[in-house]
Amino acid sequence: MRLGKITENALKRSVLKQLRTEFKNTTSAAVGTDCAFSEKKRTFSTIVPVTVNVQDAAFYGVVKAVNGLVSQGLIPDHVEVSALLPIDAEEQVIKKIVADAIRAAKFCKVVYSGGHTEVTSAVNRPLVTVSAVGSCDDVSKSSGLFDSKPAPGQMLVMTKWAAMEGTAMLAAEKYQELTGRYPAPFIDDAISLREALFVGKEMDIAVESGITAAHDLSNGGVFAGLWDMAARAGCGLKVDMRCIPLRQETVEICEFFGLNPYHLLSGGSLLLATDNGEKLVADLRENGILAVVIGELVEGNDKVIINSDETRFLESPQADEILTVLG
């Protein structure tokens, strides 16, 4: 199998098919959603293994796991962190993992309730996995956005910037290389993007403004998120590539490493489906959140990306670009 997130077909064949066979009358995981849930108690959970080789894996893992709940309109409660360490790991390694996890939990306003730590010969570098658990505010109502679906005719709004998560990771992990070409303050600004990865504020605004679906743009980047949104809606889409917001730091760092920013980790950015894109954008911007209408969902199966005079079809999600540098 390829590196990174498994393909949609493999997910359907080897994971979702088994779930639907064994639990025919139970609603749970689905393509294009960011969490799963227990139908009986309406308790929701996410699980995030951080396979990218970064020093602050626990920070990214906690934020990503919590975002998986928040992006479905749910209320996160606590996180648990599992750390598998290689046999040559020093105690300071686990100390940093826990410190990073606590910092992220405070950042996301959730409880770090514990986890598991083990030294094993099965790994050659620390492997961090984070689970987040939450609920909806009223079990008698729809479970956040989990029960709603986007539909043709709705507009697609994107918040913040594409590839901000991957940009922050690369800037921190490859600092010496990058500051050999770019000014240190420029790369420091790129690293600081990780402080904008939590999506709680914008989700509160978006739910109040009126949305039918939300997707945290993480693994595979913006293009993977667009594919997932269309799959969830069961239709096609049309997106203007020029409207997708990019930071200059992202452009320069991606050019430095020869990466496609539209296939790069984009955690912290949301893809939102709504009947009124202009209102949603205005509501978000009024609260200091960058937001842009980038396209719409359309009838049929064609997933079209327009870039000036060039038109092409969106391909199924590829392995995340960051794995070519930090895999």
Rank of each mutant, 00 (worst) to 15 (best):
K238P: 01
S28I: 12
V63A: 02
E195Q: 10
S142F: 11
H263C: 07
S143V: 10
K279V: 07
I75S: 14
E22F: 13
F37Q: 00
I205D: 04
I102P: 01
I97E: 03
M164P: 00
T167K: 02
F186S: 00
V133L: 09
Q248F: 09
G166C: 02
D302F: 04
I244S: 07
V50M: 14
A65D: 01
D100A: 00
S266Q: 06
L270G: 07
G180F: 04
V123N: 12
N301F: 10
A230H: 13
A213I: 03
C235E: 08
I47F: 09
P49M: 04
M158A: 13
V66W: 06
K106L: 09
G61D: 03
V325N: 03
F107V: 05
A213P: 01
L237D: 05
V298P: 00
Q176L: 14
K12I: 15
G295E: 09
V15A: 13
G73A: 11
A105Q: 05
H116S: 14
T27W: 05
I289D: 04
N124A: 12
A231P: 01
A224G: 06
S308R: 09
K17C: 11
P183Y: 11
R103D: 13
C35G: 03
V79Y: 08
V110I: 08
V31N: 03
V98L: 10
K64V: 07
K41Y: 14
E118K: 14
Q55S: 12
S316N: 11
S142A: 14
V111E: 15
H116R: 10
P317F: 07
S308N: 12
A206F: 08
E173I: 02
G225C: 15
Q318R: 11
E195R: 13
N25L: 08
P76Q: 14
L226A: 08
A89F: 06
V15E: 09
G220Y: 00
L284K: 06
V48Q: 14
M164C: 07
D188W: 00
R247G: 01
A282D: 12
E91F: 13
E173T: 04
L290H: 13
E296K: 15
A83Y: 12
D147Q: 13
I47M: 06
S71N: 07
C235Q: 09
G277H: 12
G153Q: 12
L265S: 15
P261G: 01
I253C: 00
V123Y: 11
